[in-house]
Design a protein around this nucleic acid. Structure first.
Lengths: 253, 253
DNA sequence: GACCGAACATAACCTATGTTATGTCGCAGT
DNA sequence: ACTGCGACATAACATAGGTTATGTTCGGTC
């Protein structure tokens, strides 16, 4: 298997031709290591690259005037970070590493070349953007219409499910390297209440808390709490491939 | 000017070549009229088309188990509805008209043809998807980290700003045909509280309430309340066009 | 091995917002 | 003209979740 992040990423979905691989390979830059808690970009900076996550976790967020923070999304191995900023010259949010992380940079304005050169990759990029939207919508629903308990359970399940699918070098998909502060900021609640809720779930043996994050003990139980349905995470790659007449990946999706 | 919704939509951004126009024209179907309060599609239905809004308003939403509703987004003239579903075989949300509406259907799986045929359109579609994401993220922040007052003010400003940009046959961009129920469902709050908040803003002469919707009276005042910054709505079309070497639209963006 | 700062825990108290209930108004249909 | 319904208004009351405060634990560092 290739060493390139982004090739690896796409081969997860579909079998790439030699052309596609070469194209991607020529554009991707060498991976960069970031340590935990490092600010990778800041609102207002020029948005010239996006990244593929090779290992580790990152999050995008925005600082509010009152000093609080809203985390917009978390990124796990295999995710593409910063596609959103395709439409903007400057970054509209901050990006921070959650753990030690390796990212592969890709120049934003070369995306255009990819679009015109590879029908397959163009469509896959679009599919990914659509799935990203679906994730945002689901979080919207989480924030708007669920209780703290439901929010937390739902969010944990989503991240675990995304880890499952990432299927990269992740060992234990039930373990999430999240601090309670981060969780609270992602779910629009206070740290104190995040703690309360998490401990509640712990009492019920649904989760476990360690110094290095949160562990899911009982996914079915959590599912009952949250009403979680992973449908929105499962993009219809096969349908797309069939539509554009491309061979599917040999790997299971 | 053309009669096609989608051509009109894109010409708003950039000058289309004759090829592009013909391509779009061949794919778009004849406009369809819907009356106020009509359910256009439902969760679970096959997602075979997306729509361009020619006139009127629509909203996408999801019904929750407890009977409540979360509105995901509103669509105004010029918007494209349903691009999100590109990644999914079935619709992941419901679509409802807010007013009488005219929509132009476009078969989803022909998008692929557009991508491979027109470099310009492909990039514009991607830009639109990215802007849609930015809108969702901003709503996320709204729900997560703002008070009811701020939420309402921010949301009203966003919609007004989007109307400004739509620049289609909209007469008064300060008038939004929203019911209080809809507003509440979009902002994840109760109708009662939406009413309270709206009346508060009305006391301060920031908005006016009529039987047919909400009117913005003092955008600057609302801006002060909400801390609204329209940056996330203003996609960098020029940068994109320059990057792909296409001529800009003669019309002001 | 003393010090420091994250992250976590817990309690007491407070408030923004939800809930329930009831009433008015205007308008569409009969 | 009567009825019914949907949108809006408002008041009384309930509560989920925020805020403030204080303490513990633990890993890093000089």
């Amino acid at each position: 298997m290739t060493d390139s992040c982004i090739i690896r990423h796409f081969e997860h979905y579909a079998e790439l031709g030699q052309d596609d691989r070469e194209l991607l390979d020529s554009l991707e830059k060498t991976p960069k290591d970031f340590s935990k808690g490092q600010l990778i970009w800041q609102q207002g900076m020029e948005s010239d690259h996006f990244y593929t996550v090779r290992s580790g976790w990152a999050c995008s967020f925005r600082n509010m005037e009152d000093g609080s923070r809203q985390v917009q999304d978390l990124y796990v191995p295999g995710d593409i970070v910063g596609l959103r900023e395709f439409a903007f010259r400057r970054r509209v949010s901050n990006l921070l590493t959650v753990t030690n992380t390796t990212l592969c940079p890709f120049p934003k304005n070369r995306l255009t070349d990819v679009f015109s050169t590879s029908r397959l990759l163009c469509n896959l990029f679009f599919l990914i953007a659509a799935r990203d939207q679906a994730i945002l919508v689901e979080r919207l629903i989480n924030l708007g219409r669920r209780t703290a308990r439901e929010k937390v359970a739902h969010f944990l399940l989503e991240m675990a499910h995304r880890l499952d699918k990432a299927c990269m070098d992740v060992h234990d998909c039930n373990h999430l390297p999240l601090t309670q502060v981060l969780l609270a900021d992602a779910l629009g609640m206070s740290t104190v209440h995040a703690n309360r809720t998490l401990n509640e779930l712990k009492q019920e043996s649904l989760t476990a808390l360690g110094p290095d994050g949160i562990t899911l003990l009982d996914r079915d139980g959590l599912k009952d709490v949250a009403g979680f349905d992973p449908e929105y995470l499962d993009a219809d790659v096969e349908g797309l491939l069939k539509n554009i007449g491309a061979p599917a990946s040999s790997q299971p999706a």
